[in-house]
Design a protein around this nucleic acid. Structure first.
Lengths: 199, 199
DNA sequence: ATGGTGATGGCAGCGGCTGACATCAAGTCG
DNA sequence: CGACTTGATGTCAGCCGCTGCCATCACCAT
């Protein structure tokens, strides 16, 4: 038996790629199968072919593993705000930022997003974390608006409005609305404008 | 030595009163002195003259001990909504509900509220819990408005507006604004109305 | 007296999370 | 080409949050 054959029996490369992604997928599967409370971090790591200690090197805690996409989304939104034409008003700039979201959440990810949301909705601890992520997102957008020269409280209000639009559109998207996310975002924003124009 | 004297050496009553309140005070003190993370539940219980096990009979977890007043506040707000005259519009009803808050948070509690808020602001885990409590409060107010016949999305928007007003007024109150909480709430609500009337 | 009730204590144990140290493939540089 | 560094992972010990289970015992009703 050659040396090459031996080294092939044992992993050729020391570590399989994308440890973080494997942990995220394993966690979502287990949370969906058994529930969040009945899932142990050791169990997640085992399914991912890793150890518990490694899990905590990638994620701060057992909840955070479901929110790995949050920083990406936040960066995109802030970048979208900065890229909006200077002439655009606060809500128009927010709309431009929201319009970049489908790049992060294309149609292929709809089913996965829905599964993830079902898990979150079923677990108080995860809903709490989701609120915190939303608050951070809203604060970042308010900051981005201020950097465009928007004053307070307009910046905070517009950011809150943007968050509300996202919530509504995202809920429709994972709820099975046939329209794509970009269309839903635009429609929800238009509805908000309609409501604001009334009473 | 009489039997009466002996029973006085050892506690006359089996348990000191207000175990829950003692735990709340001990926790706030320790969180303020050493920080949330450096405080153990066993330490809180010890300062309160109880055991760790008893702490968890009164509070679901280490964070919840700072939010014992939340259900009371929520009940008052919902009751205030229900008590507002039927002719009052959504935001006026919310204003009437907010006006009942100073009964729960009178001037004497300002210093304690400020200390508590400083601890919360210094601890991510506690800020997360605070967000959850606020969300619950907002949902309860939206529900109360719906029971007054207010439709969606007006009910949710008015509830969010009420929460924003409370946040602003409360922040000013614990920030040392000389006006009392009732005045601050009314002023903040008036400012919101002003903003809404503009662009 | 007798027995029920409710708040608390004591104890064992799981699991989340952390610090410290070891391992070892792959890259870097002389 | 060999020594040295780097970085992702493994291993282990240990604290602490949190829970289930059973015991205790003042108080209260009958």
């Amino acid at each position: 038996m050659s040396v090459a054959a031996i080294t092939t029996l044992v992993p050729v490369v020391r570590w399989q790629p994308d440890a973080r992604g494997r942990l995220e997928r394993a966690a979502l599967e287990l949370y969906a199968e058994r529930g969040f409370d009945a899932t142990t971090v050791a169990g997640i790591a085992e399914r991912a072919g890793l150890t518990e200690r490694t899990f905590f090197r990638h994620f701060a805690d057992k909840r955070e593993v479901l929110f790995g996409g949050s920083p990406v989304l936040q960066e995109r939104l802030v970048a979208g705000l900065a890229a909006a034409p200077p002439s655009a008003g606060p809500l128009a700039a927010v709309g431009a930022a929201l319009a970049t979201i489908p790049e992060t959440l294309p149609e292929e990810r709809r089913a996965g997003a829905a599964q993830r949301q079902a898990v979150i909705d079923a677990t108080p601890e995860l809903r709490e974390r989701e609120l915190a992520k939303f608050a951070a997102l809203t604060a970042a957008m308010a900051q981005g608006l201020r950097e465009r020269g928007v004053g307070e409280p307009t910046a905070s209000l517009a950011a809150e409005a943007g968050a509300a639009v996202f919530r509504v559109a995202f809920g429709r998207w994972i709820g099975g609305d046939a329209r794509d996310l970009g269309t839903l975002l635009a429609a929800s924003l238009a509805e908000l404008r309609g409501v604001a124009a009334d009473g």
